[in-house]
Structures are given as structure tokens and as C-alpha cells.
């Protein structure tokens, strides 16, 4: 299968390859990222107008302080459980609202993908591969652990860059 793929790909030139990828980028951007970002901005708007954002910030402040992040950062982590695009949108929206700094957003980026929306992944990754369902909890737990540890790792890296 793989060899057939390679042969097919080799017949395309670089420009064709670029345009093909670019087209996929446009499709992902408009059909996946845009709705997710709009959703994230609307959620932040609702939370902001109702004053819940401040509340969430205060409630999660002691927990998020472990990672050197403000309480609002919890929104990004919660969003990443459901949607990676939504979580990035959330992070940028909070950055725009001055709730997160550029450094704090940077720290959160790998975590968003390492968490990797387990809501969808149970069907898409675990289900398709036919993983023993007894291991689901462990595998999702690993995603959460990876995500939380990576924030510390990024914080450490930022000390040197």
C-alpha cells in the first residue's frame, strides 16, 4: 500500500504538492478552524459578559498556580478535552483579552495537542485500533498526564529561550 502511494506521489511535482496541501489547509481553516474559533470567542464573550470568566479565574487560580498560570488558563485545558481548535481559539481569545500573556499561551500549546480531544479520540483512535476497552481509562489518563507535564516542560524551556 505504502509503495503504491509513494509511486503516485512521485509523479506530482512540487507545485502540485504544494497546491494540494494548501487546498487542504484552506478546507481545514474554513470548515474546522473557523467554526471552532467563532465558538471559542462566543463562549469567552458569554463568560465575560456574565462575569463567569472572573469567577472561573478565581476558582481555578490556586490549581493553575502550580503551573505558574492564571485561573483563566483552566478554560484552555477544559476546551482541549473537547476540541483542539477550540482550545487554541480560547487561548488566543484570552491573550487578546489580556488574561494570558504570550509566554503563558506558549506554555499551553503542546498541552492542547497532547490532551488531543479525548472525547473524539475514544472513537477515532482507540475504537478504530480495537484497543481492549479495559485500557481506555489508562490511555486517556496518560493524555491528561502528558498534557499537564508538558506545561512544566515548556515553562522550563522558556527559561532558556
Amino acid at each position: 500500500m505504502a509503495n503504491g502511494e509513494t509511486a503516485e506521489v512521485k509523479s506530482k511535482n512540487i507545485l502540485d504538492l504544494f497546491v494540494e496541501g494548501a487546498r487542504r489547509g484552506f478546507t481545514i481553516g474554513t470548515t474546522s478552524l473557523m467554526p471552532n474559533v467563532v465558538m471559542a470567542f462566543v463562549i469567552i464573550r458569554i463568560l465575560d459578559v456574565t462575569g463567569l470568566l472572573k469567577l472561573i479565574g478565581n476558582v481555578f487560580a490556586p490549581v493553575m498556580a502550580l503551573w505558574g498560570l492564571p485561573g483563566e488558563a483552566a478554560m484552555v485545558i477544559i476546551a482541549s478535552i473537547m476540541s483542539m481548535g477550540g482550545a487554541v481559539g480560547m487561548a488566543v481569545s484570552l491573550y487578546n483579552a489580556d488574561s494570558l500573556t504570550a509566554a503563558q499561551v506558549t506554555m499551553l500549546i503542546p498541552a492542547i495537542y497532547l490532551m488531543g480531544n479525548p472525547v473524539q479520540n475514544v472513537g477515532r483512535c482507540l475504537g478504530i485500533a480495537g484497543v481492549n476497552s479495559k485500557h481506555y481509562f489508562a490511555i486517556i489518563g496518560i493524555c491528561v498526564v502528558n498534557a499537564l507535564l508538558s506545561i512544566w516542560a515548556m515553562r522550563f524551556i522558556l527559561l532558556f529561550l
Binding site: 506521489v9 512521485k10 506530482k12 512540487i14 504538492l17 504544494f18 497546491v19 494540494e20 496541501g21 494548501a22 487542504r24 489547509g25 484552506f26 481545514i28 481553516g29 474554513t30 478552524l33 473557523m34 474559533v37 467563532v38 465558538m39 471559542a40 470567542f41 462566543v42 464573550r45 465575560d48 481559539g89 488566543v92 481569545s93 487578546n96
Partner: peptide, 30 residues
């Protein structure tokens, strides 16, 4: 703010995605 700001913001992002996935596809294809 809100949906309108989110919409315009996502338009700001799309060129980077088009460029990045174009490059990734070339790299993968080669």
C-alpha cells in the same frame, strides 16, 4: 468581540494554515 471578532480572527489565521499545510505536503511528498 464575540462571533464577529472570532470570524475576522480566523480569517487572519487561514493564510498561515494554507502555507503550512502546503509546505508539509511538499515535505511529505518528497
Amino acid at each position: 468581540s464575540g462571533a464577529r471578532d472570532g470570524f475576522l480572527f480566523s480569517i487572519e489565521l487561514i493564510p498561515a494554515i494554507i502555507l503550512a499545510l502546503g509546505i508539509v505536503n511538499v515535505v511529505d511528498g518528497l
